[in-house]
């Protein structure tokens, strides 16, 4: 069923209070592929990510992450997933390095300070901030630590939830670079976003989610920015 795919969602559905929040969603991501899941608030993007992370159990369908069944073995599946939430919150009393080492440890990896510094630099965090407590970090700086946490995990699949929300242009651009770099290293990336501009820049494929259903799916290269916006609006109002 997976054909070497890193992520397979097969006819996944979930109900909340009698409402079909995700309706028969199927999706397949190959290594190195960047997939953008577009949709308005409440379309089911975050629910999809939570299903993949194993925080929610679908009522029907299958979820396979790098060959591991995400429903029966959510912890094993999570070991193959790096995740960057919309807002990365860190331990304010710990330094960036300590935060990174802590989350790496939670992922089962013990990393030394030097490795942590390299990962933070790779994520774009300036060296002077590595040893500082994160209590006064901006959202962008915390996001970079979050990226370093994701990189430290050396996962097969990267999930991003509204990754550019609230970031300034420079930080958002750095994030796009990171996504491309991850893709180049063979990591599959699934990003839930509103950011059509960024999608066009980094994604290979995009899907539009409406009321839990995937209503359209395109190659990002085959569609121009204006066309994408028109398609998005059309699918939301149809």
């Amino acid at each position: 069923m997976d054909d070497g795919a890193v992520l397979v969602l097969d006819a996944v559905s979930i109900n909340f209070n009698g409402r079909l929040t995700i309706n028969n969603l199927s999706l397949k991501l190959k290594p190195g592929e960047v997939y953008a899941l577009l949709g308005p608030n409440g379309a089911g993007k975050t629910t999809t990510l939570n299903l993949i992370l194993g925080f929610l159990t679908p009522d029907s369908g299958a979820i396979i992450i790098d060959g591991v069944d995400g429903i029966t073995d959510p912890t094993g599946a999570r070991a193959r997933i790096a995740y960057l939430p919309e807002t990365v919150m860190l331990h304010p009393a710990l330094t960036a390095i300590e935060n990174l080492r802590y989350f790496a440890l939670l992922a089962g990896r013990k990393i030394e300070d030097a490795t942590a510094r390299r990962l933070l630099s790779d994520a774009g965090l300036q060296a002077e901030a590595h040893g500082r407590r994160t209590s006064d970090f901006s959202k962008g700086m915390r996001q970079k630590v979050g990226v370093a946490i994701a990189l430290a995990k050396d996962a097969r699949l990267l999930l991003l939830d509204e990754p550019t929300s609230g970031l300034d242009a420079g930080a958002a651009n750095d994030l796009s670079d990171m996504i491309r770099a991850a893709s180049t290293r063979g990591m599959a990336v699934l990003m839930a976003t509103h950011d059509l501009f960024r999608v066009k820049n980094v994604a290979h494929r995009l899907g539009i989610l409406r009321e839990g259903r995937l209503v359209d799916e395109r190659d990002a290269a085959a569609i121009g920015p204006v066309e994408l916006e028109e398609l998005y609006l059309e699918k939301l109002t149809a």
Binding site: L53, F55, T75, G76, R78, A79, I81, Y83, P85, T87, V88, M89, L90, H91, P92, F103, L106, A107, G108, G146, I149, K153, L159
Partner: peptide, 18 residues
């Protein structure tokens, strides 16, 4: 309360162990 638990949970630690 700080909104960090999702990131904690997204690593491969079982809740019982954490």
């Amino acid at each position: 309360d700080r909104g960090m638990l999702q990131l904690v949970a997204a690593q491969s630690t079982r809740p019982q162990l954490w």
